[in-house]
Nucleic acid binder design. Structure first.
Lengths: 183, 183
DNA sequence: TTGCTAAGTTATTGGCCAATCACTAATCTT
DNA sequence: AAGATTAGTGATTGGCCAATAACTTAGCAA
């Protein structure tokens, strides 16, 4: 397998592992095992552990957008909003995608606390790009902000692991119904 | 100082450290240093590191509610919502309070991935209790859900470290103005 | 003043982990 | 077929860290 192909499989494996354990709680050994290569070989493909995390973070944000894009292609405004909302509910079927997003958020502060702004800049740029694309599709900033807010609530409910049918999920569903009714 | 008083100061110190580094990225040594005691003494006060994290998590959620409670005492409905929204903006002045919340969220999944449901149960119970109290104050479930969603968006913007005045913050402010106008 | 209790320390250990080094095996080039 | 490039491994190391064990100090009661 070429180095470039390997790098891609490392990024996918890293996403799964980092989603579970976070940056500090994930060993390069665990990533290597999942890829099926030796641990030292990761350091031929990436300069260090942080570079793997950054690549996984980039990939995660792009993947999120692709899911929204696919779901709402050709739509705008309220129709796009509904399509993307459904896409989000599909996305969270695997908790890992959501968890990786949250791991990015907490890693920014940790990194910046020790003087490293690199992850932060990647994350801020990536997240803002996601926001802009959503805003362009929904047509206005306020709708996009509200969409993101709902997304962040979903992330939290998923992370905390409330089972389907819990009152918190019901509350969210009711909120959506009411919004769709008004909109 | 009595053991009980020490335990309380450990919890406060632990919140700061865990907020920055997360569970795995925080050493008991760092917590002890912040408290001003030796590292092994922590294990006289708590059975293990996880117990310290759990205590800090509990404390964090309770503290959040106290801030809301103080701000909205005697108010209900829309007035309570505005008061609590302002309180939230005050809360995030120290990024640590917000970050500890997010660290709780990601720690639940990490713990449950290795078969430990304890943190998860504490976090789910604590967060739901927070939700119920807010719902009771705001008067209905949908308002509470929306309030929480906005809170989770704020958490994310804070975690990612967007500076005040960034378009994302402006979008949020506009959303609030519009909602207040309608409400 | 002795003996007890509660607060606290120093020293240590066993395990994990990122990263480096030196090496091997296969494929491609000329 | 020789030399060069590319993919990949095994062994190791130095540092960190949770937790334990053994010891110390200070107050207090009889």
């Amino acid at each position: 397998m070429s180095a470039e192909e390997r790098r891609e499989s490392v990024v996918r494996a890293a996403m799964v592992e980092f989603a579970r354990g976070g940056y500090r709680g994930t060993s390069t050994e665990a990533i290597a095992r999942r890829v099926g290569v030796s641990q030292p070989y990761l350091f031929r493909l990436f300069p260090n552990k942080q570079a793997i995390f950054e690549a996984a973070a980039e990939h995660c944000i792009e993947e999120t957008w692709r899911a929204f894009d696919r779901a709402s292609e050709g739509l705008t405004g309220e129709a796009a909003c509904e399509a993307m909302g459904e896409a989000y509910l599909g996305l969270i079927a695997d908790r890992e995608q959501v968890m990786m997003q949250m791991q990015i958020y907490v890693s920014v502060f940790a990194a910046e606390s020790v003087g490293d702004n690199e992850i932060g800049e990647i994350a801020r740029a990536g997240w803002f790009r996601l926001f802009e694309r959503i805003r362009d599709r929904l047509g206005d900033r306020v709708s996009a902000t509200e969409f993101m807010a709902h997304g962040m609530l979903i992330n939290t409910l998923v992370a905390l692991g409330y089972p389907a049918g819990h009152e918190l999920w019901e509350g969210f569903a009711e909120l959506n119904r009411r919004r769709d009714g008004e909109g």
